[in-house]
Design a protein around this nucleic acid. Structure first.
Length: 554
RNA sequence: UGGGUUAUGGUGUAAAGGUAGCACUACAGUUUUUGGUACUGUCUGUCUAGGUUCGAAUCCUAGUAACCCUACCA
């Protein structure tokens, strides 16, 4: 059987907890804030949280962390649900931090009663000032001395809308001298007279992250609350609140977020790319968003495989984008239909092939799939081949077409180039070739072996298509570490459009879910911009190209 | 002389005192009607300096580096 895979540190913690009988079942959650679209970094978290529950027989909630009405929208909620589902996961419950606003308010009241929270009238500047710095302790102000009764009344009045935004906050009373800034009497409620996408105008005070997240975890009996490294300093506060509130003890564990070369993973920056029109939208195929990758033609299987391969640990990492591409190719190779499309055509005439004759050639849909079947490809006297597949004076080791040189036309005949026709500018306009009738695919009795095989499309049967080729969105390997503004590193050539490529007729019936390999070109899928009149294909990823490497070397 | 976290090939990630392994990348080859796929092989690594031990990536001591923490964001 398969060798047992080593556990990541979170799996180890869970297996220990389970072995000790700390829990019967584990409960995890995926807690996005609905203020942007999900990206591949979220995919890592989704695969982790849902994957753990699946592996250890537990469940996972989808919980929207919607405590800041000024940045959150229903559009984002909808996109997040769609993306999680598309990735192949099912949540046990669809929940919202805003469902708990009343419970959270009661928790705050409990803290006030215990003398562990107070209403502070200071301005935000004053609060920042009194907070000190990492190396200098903060100071408590006179508001911290208010009685529980006074705080209770003030907090009720805050809720009732008696005070304007920013005039008062509720703070936990912990330790202004703590070396952990988050324990220096953190703000847990602020006044925001803002319309919330779910609770409307019911509230004008909203809990802060630290007073919502852990409490929501606790309410849902989350056993393992998994987040990223930057929340490590929040853990003492997370634990403090649970302890003082005497509620279900959820525990927080932190792992390193995903970074990928030539990508940005900050929602703020991605939003900027969208609003400033550097890309066509959140689902632009160049975006590292789940919706972008979906439109690009990446499969959920390949993204899950990627998340599995990158592992889970606590050290900062920068994953090679090539690994994602590898996972995409690996899956697409198994499932995609092979088709022929010529991007940059040059006409090829087979002089000894009868005019008007058309043969339907059989070509396999997928050599990786024995049961994949064949499709028919029309062959005739006039064809298009790729301009780069001919060289008048061939480079060494070039085994494509050249004067006097023979190649096979994929699933058809072996041909030989006899003549090159140029226009007055010296541009090649036509290649005149002859074919070997006895070399037909499937019944080749020519005895000849040729090194090159070319893809082709019959001129008379060609279907026009637009092709969109994508390259990395940024020119810097580590965009976040690069000097200056990230927008300075946007790759101006990240999108290249081929207006008119020529496709074999089988492609005319394409639909959005089909995946293709355009032979010798790469993996492609239909774009949603396609119409009945116009086919548009996105390149998901190129094929590995040994010849390109060879050329680069010299 | 603030606190916290992390250091293993080019990139990730394993090894819980006992052969430094796996994947990607790179390179070389075999097969091939895709210069694809598949297959085979090769290169490259324990942050530094001491110490404990028969034996250290792992334990101890002292350094070094990177990242995080001073939002009424999450």
């Amino acid at each position: 059987m398969s060798e047992e895979k080593s556990l990541n540190f979170i799996e180890e913690i869970i297996e220990n907890d389970l072995a000790e009988g700390k829990y019967d079942k584990i409960v995890t959650r995926f807690p996005p804030e609905p203020n942007g679209y999900l990206h591949v970094g979220h995919a890592k978290s989704i695969c982790l949280n849902f994957g753990l529950a699946k592996k250890y027989g537990g469940k996972t909630n989808l919980r929207f962390d919607d405590t800041n009405p000024s940045t959150e929208e229903t559009e984002y909620v909808d996109s997040i649900k769609e993306d999680v589902k598309w990735l192949g996961f099912e949540w046990a419950n669809e929940l919202y931090a805003s469902d708990y606003f009343e419970a959270l308010y009661q928790f705050a009241t409990a803290l006030i009663k215990k003398g562990l929270a107070y209403v502070d009238d200071s301005t935000s500047d004053e609060i920042a000032e009194q907070k000190g710095t990492p190396s200098a302790a903060g100071k408590r102000n006179q508001y911290a001395d208010r009685t529980a009764e006074e705080n209770q009344i003030l907090f009720e009045e805050m809720r009732a809308g008696r005070y304007p935004d920013g005039s008062k906050v509720l703070r936990a009373k912990i330790d202004m001298a703590s070396s952990n800034m988050l324990l220096r009497d953190p703000i847990i409620y602020r006044i925001k007279h803002a319309h919330h996408h779910r609770t409307g105008d019911d509230w004008c005070i909203y809990p802060m992250y630290d007073f919502a997240h852990g409490q929501s975890d606790s309410i849902e009996n989350i056993t393992h609350s998994i987040c990223t490294l930057e929340f490590i300093p929040h853990r003492p506060l997370y634990d403090w609140l649970i302890e003082k509130l005497e509620i279900f003890p959820s525990h927080q564990y932190e792992f390193a977020r995903l970074n990928i070369t030539y990508c940005i993973m900050s929602k703020r920056k991605l939003l900027q790319l969208v609003t400033e029109n550097f890309v066509s939208g959140w689902d632009d195929p160049r975006m590292p968003t789940i919706s972008g990758m979906r439109r690009r033609g990446f499969t959920p299987e390949s993204i899950r495989e990627f998340c599995d391969k990158i592992g889970v640990a606590k050290r900062e990492n920068l994953i090679d984008f090539g690994l994602l591409e590898f996972c995409v190719r690996e899956h697409l190779n198994r499932i995609s239909f092979r088709r022929m499309v010529v991007f940059d055509p040059v006409k090829l005439v087979i002089t000894n092939y009868e005019e008007g004759r058309v043969e339907m050639m059989q070509s396999e849909n997928n050599p990786e799939d024995e049961n994949g079947g064949n499709r028919e490809v029309p062959f005739s006297r006039e064809l298009y081949i790729e301009r780069e597949d001919f060289m008048e004076t061939p480079a060494k080791k070039y085994f494509r077409l050249a004067p006097g040189q023979m190649v096979r036309l994929k699933s058809a005949y072996i041909i030989k180039c006899d003549d090159v026709i140029k226009d007055s500018a010296g541009e090649i306009v036509e290649l005149r070739c002859s074919y070997l009738p006895e070399s037909k695919s499937g019944g080749d009795s020519s005895g000849l072996k040729v090194k090159g095989t070319l893809h082709w499309v019959s001129v008379a049967h060609a279907v026009a298509a637009e092709i969109r080729l994508y390259d990395r969105l940024f020119t810097a390997e580590n965009v976040d570490a690069a000097e200056g503004d990230f927008k300075d590193y946007i790759n101006p050539y990240s999108l290249q459009v081929i207006q008119t490529a020529f496709a074999e007729p089988a492609l005319s019936g394409s639909n959005l879910i089909d995946r293709y390999q355009f032979i010798r070109k790469g993996y492609f899928c239909l774009d949603k911009d396609s119409t009945a009149e116009k086919l548009i294909f996105n390149r998901s990823v190129t094929l590995k190209d040994a010849w390109a490497k060879e050329v680069k070397k010299s």
